[in-house]
């Protein structure tokens, strides 16, 4: 019972860390934009990168995307992203 709680304690720490990181990244992106510290093209790349990190954290830490068998969860997501990306690219090129 004691070992269990220690293990779970570690887990809750992980969750908390992920959350903290996300808030941090959001705040950072927010301030970068608010004060326009960097030139726009680079800024866009940077905040997009921040968003990507946050998405990966959500999927991996909170949503448990790395299941044990099959990899169907990731496959489903990749399939959707592929179609979505095609749509976005060609709608922008419009």
């Amino acid at each position: 019972m004691k070992r269990l709680s220690k293990h779970t304690n570690k887990e809750i720490h992980k969750l908390f860390l992920s959350f903290l990181l996300m808030i941090l990244l959001t705040a950072l992106a927010f301030f970068l934009v608010l004060y326009q510290l960097i030139s726009p093209p680079f800024l866009i790349v940077l905040i997009t990168f921040f968003a990507l990190i946050q998405i990966v954290i959500q999927l991996d830490r909170f949503m448990d995307i790395r299941e044990k068998e099959g990899g169907y969860r990731l496959t489903s997501l990749i399939g959707g992203s592929f179609v979505a990306l095609l749509a976005i690219v060609f709608l922008i090129l419009l």
Binding site: V83, A87, F90, L91, L94
Partner: peptide, 9 residues
């Protein structure tokens, strides 16, 4: 044209 793209996607 947005409609045409979405519809044919």
């Amino acid at each position: 044209l947005i409609w045409q793209h979405l519809f044919w996607i």
